[in-house]
Amino acid sequence: MTERVAQRNPWLVLAGFLGVVAVVAGVGALAATSARDVYARLEQPSWAAPASWFGPVWTVLYVMIALAGWCYWRTDGETRGFAAYGIGLLFNLLWTPLFFAGGATRLALADIVLLDVVVVVTIVLFARRSKLAAALLVPYLAWILYATALNTAIVVLA
């Protein structure tokens, strides 16, 4: 552990990562107040997940995203990794308001495709310093790739 990392209380830093990710989740939750109704009205493919899955899945994923950032920080992670992580959080934050609150499914699709790319880049950058940090993001990548396919199908079926 480097001197910079050793100087900070790791539990406070973990709380910071959890807090930042909670803000992203909170914005999504506020934008998704009518998500169940909107989702139910959309023309969906037969393989679409039930609306009841999204809350529990995202709760676990958000905790894993925060832990990934913290694990990377513990290695004295480089700026590029944190930049990718932050950009990914921004794209994540934007998707729910675009898709559910704004009804902009095509713009949401562009956003989530960019999110897919940024998460892959983040995994690659994190893996250079922490295999655990990178591995914690893999379920997130799998879920957003599924969400990308679902968003694509909804755009095509509309």
Score class of each variant (00 low, 15 high):
A68L: 05
D76W: 03
G88T: 06
N92Y: 11
R41C: 01
A68H: 01
E43H: 14
V117S: 11
L137M: 15
R4W: 15
C71N: 15
L136C: 00
L42C: 04
A104M: 12
A134Y: 02
F99S: 13
W53T: 05
V13C: 11
A32D: 09
V113C: 15
G16Y: 00
W143F: 13
L125M: 08
V21L: 02
T122S: 13
G69T: 08
I154W: 11
S130P: 10
G77K: 04
A104P: 13
A84C: 07
T33H: 01
W47S: 00
W11P: 02
V120P: 05
N151R: 00
N151P: 03
I112T: 10
T75L: 07
I123A: 09
I65S: 01
G102N: 11
A149C: 12
A147E: 12
A25I: 06
A108M: 10
E78P: 05
I112P: 15
F91V: 14
W53C: 12
V117L: 14
T152R: 07
A147K: 07
G81W: 05
F54K: 01
T75P: 05
F82S: 00
A35G: 05
V21M: 07
A153W: 03
L136N: 02
W95L: 05
F126N: 04
E78L: 05
R8Q: 15
A66V: 00
A29Q: 15
L89C: 04
Y85S: 09
F100D: 01
W47P: 13
G55F: 10
I65P: 00
P45L: 04
A29K: 09
W47L: 01
G88R: 06
A84M: 15
L89W: 12
V13T: 11
Y62G: 00
G102W: 10
R129A: 12
A40W: 14
P45E: 04
T148W: 03
T59G: 14
F100I: 09
L141T: 08
R80I: 08
W70M: 00
E78R: 10
S130H: 09
S34G: 14
P97Y: 10
